[in-house]
């Protein structure tokens, strides 16, 4: 059988979601942001909710998020996506509202808004991309930067006595009574992508239950910030990030998952 006979529309088993504009993502090669954005579009398309969803883009690498999605999006100020999401949901309770935020946005400047949004149990979804570094501004330390990790503002490696510890923000959010679902995922392998996609779908479906906030953290790479080749960065992530930020569900159906 010739390749030409395989490449026919009826044989197509995977293609980029129609809910993404046909533009090139403005992320660095191999960046997990692209995969996550793609997955969100796929899930929205599969759920058939593109007329009911409003996304909120942050400040940082994903600030241009709204250039990609073919559904309504707004851009919130740095760290305040959860506040904007709260208001959007309160005035339009029948819509699906999600924010998409990096580690600096959510776990540094936006800590207060995020905690109180989860504590009120707003029926929204928060996507939190944790790559342990500030990508957009050139690779400075983030709240989630690993101990000993070198960044442009921790040239000798993060010292806990100087700069504190890597912040386990999703665990903090999970401990709040208003948080209904909290999970930590990755998108660096096909198996991880499949799991992550299920988590995204569940987090959006949860909004209809009106039981509280859903938080999906993605441990992701920043090969530019980490100064690595994309594939090597994914390996480094497995070896160094996952022990500190283990993947898996943290809270399901309002109950914390006991981990051994």
């Amino acid at each position: 059988m010739d390749i030409k006979d395989i490449i026919r529309p009826e044989n197509r088993v995977y293609k980029k979601s129609d809910l993404l504009y046909d533009t090139t993502f403005n992320f660095c090669p191999g960046c997990g942001h692209g995969t996550i954005v793609r997955l969100i579009a796929e899930v929205v398309q599969e759920m058939g909710i593109e007329h009911e969803v409003i996304g909120i883009s942050p400040i940082g690498c994903s600030v241009l998020l709204y250039d990609f999605f073919r559904f309504d999006v707004i851009n919130a100020s740095h760290g305040r996506a959860a506040a904007a999401a709260t208001a959007l949901k309160r005035v339009m309770p029948d819509r699906y509202i999600f924010s998409y935020q990096g580690d600096g946005d959510i776990a540094a400047i936006g800590t207060s808004e995020t905690i109180h949004t989860c504590n009120r149990g707003e029926n929204i979804t928060i996507f939190f991309i944790n790559n342990a570094i500030y990508g957009m501004t050139g690779g400075q330390m983030a709240p989630t930067t690993l101990t000993g990790m070198k960044t442009s503002t921790t040239p000798g490696g993060r010292l806990t006595q100087e700069s504190g510890f890597p912040l386990h923000f999703t665990e903090m959010l999970a401990s709040l009574d208003g948080t209904y679902y909290a999970t930590r995922q990755a998108v660096h392998t096909p198996a991880a992508v499949r799991k992550a996609k299920k988590a995204i779908r569940l987090s959006l479906e949860n909004q209809k239950l009106e039981r509280g906030t859903s938080v999906v953290e993605f441990v992701s790479n920043c090969n530019s910030g980490w100064r690595m080749e994309p594939v090597a960065s994914n390996q480094w992530m497995e070896e160094h990030m996952f022990p500190v930020f283990p993947l898996g569900d943290i809270k399901c159906e309002g109950k914390l998952i006991q981990r051994s």
Partner: peptide
Amino acid sequence: IVCPDGVITVYR
């Protein structure tokens, strides 16, 4: 599904 840029279309 792992392509960060969604540039691959797959047929089977």
